[in-house]
């Protein structure tokens, strides 16, 4: 066969390969931008208050956004396939309730934990079947599960929190430390590493991106797009289940409103971190950075003694500014 090479590309090729590097260049740009935004926010907050950059405060902040961050890992995978999972808040709450019920019936810790995880997995499976078999739009399917999940919690608890006795080891999950680092933060970091590798280096990860990038082209290339979507919703459910267990272990009380509205924070984390709701774009690291950005801004607003009633509005405004800068920067770098 014919080998040819045009002068124009030949001259420029070496330089580009060196820069182009490993992963898709654009993804890296996006993540670096959010990361820069995060560092700027951190710098600003630590200049204006001495309480921010203390180990105690930082670890507290990390722990407070770790639940959202953990769930954003499942969410970002769903979003990359072009879907959405509105049920994570309810699933998290229900799973903490199931775990609590286990303890109330005197079951062993491992069984209680498995019960919580199974709750999440089942809900994920339910969502996945609705979406891939019955072909409901993900928004509708998971909105339905959101209501069912929350409804079940009210039916079970009658609106009263559940506070069973639990063994001390169980409380370690939500309250313990590894060295200076809270256990939920360790879980978050471990999950980030695992799923970042899955998304970047495995066949499954590639299929997730392809499914969201162009489902038709992926299917015609042999990707079992239905199975990919089913798996992604199951993972999202399972991860929300895990978040529920961590949350119950932290407060040792399963509130009927636990996880209420969390889905919005989780989706926001993924989107702030560069995931596109149109599918095909996003990353696990981005979602974690997004959760961190939102969490740190919220903490900074509290530390800076801003009027309590204004805090939420200011958090929203700062997020918008940070993300606008990021979008504006990545666009001016493009063509």
């Amino acid at each position: 066969m014919i080998v040819r090479d045009s002068p124009a590309t030949a001259v420029l090729r070496p330089r580009h390969t060196a820069v182009g590097g490993r992963v898709s260049a654009l993804l890296q740009v996006r993540e670096l931008n959010v990361l820069t935004a995060l560092l700027v926010v951190v710098a600003l907050i630590s200049f204006s208050t001495p309480y921010f950059l203390t180990t105690d405060n930082l670890m507290g902040v990390f722990r407070s956004f770790s639940l959202i961050a953990i769930m954003s890992i499942g969410m970002v995978m769903v979003i990359i396939t072009g879907g959405i999972d509105l049920s994570v808040g309810s699933v998290m709450g229900l799973s903490s309730l199931v775990t609590a019920l286990g303890f109330q019936s005197g079951l062993p810790t491992a069984v209680c934990i498995l019960g919580g995880l199974a709750t999440g997995l089942l809900f994920g499976l339910f969502n996945g079947v609705l979406i891939t078999v019955i072909r409901l739009p993900p928004f509708i399917a998971t909105l339905g599960s959101l209501s069912i999940g929350r409804g079940l919690m009210y039916i079970i608890t009658h609106g009263v929190p559940l506070t069973p006795d639990t063994p001390d080891v169980f409380a370690e999950i939500g309250q313990g430390y590894v060295g200076l680092v809270p256990v939920p933060v360790v879980i978050m970091l471990a999950m980030t590493i695992v799923f970042s590798v899955v998304m970047r280096k495995t066949r499954f990860g590639r299929h997730v991106y392809a499914t969201g990038g162009n489902e038709m082209a992926a299917r015609l290339s042999g990707v079992k797009t239905g199975r990919v979507k089913l798996l992604v919703y199951m993972l999202s459910g399972l991860i929300a289940g895990l978040a529920g267990i961590v949350s119950f272990s932290r407060y040792l009380s399963a509130e009927p409103a636990s996880g209420f509205g969390a889905e919005l924070d989780v989706i926001a984390a993924a989107a702030i971190g560069g995931a596109s709701l149109a599918g095909g774009v996003g990353s696990v690291e981005g979602a974690i950075i997004g959760a961190a950005l939102a969490g740190i801004i919220a903490n900074g607003v509290v530390l800076m003694n801003i009027n309590t009633y204004a805090q939420q509005a200011i958090t929203g405004a700062v997020i918008l500014i940070a993300v606008s800068l990021d979008v504006w920067r990545s666009r001016s770098k493009g063509a």
């Binding site: 495995t202 066949r203 774009v281």
Partner: peptide, 27 residues
Amino acid sequence: QGLVLGMNVRENFSLTHLEAYSPNFFV
């Protein structure tokens, strides 16, 4: 139907035969 436009040349190329580069989980 042919391409995932947002993916790069390599990822589009290998989508039909990714197994060839990933006998187990990893590519």
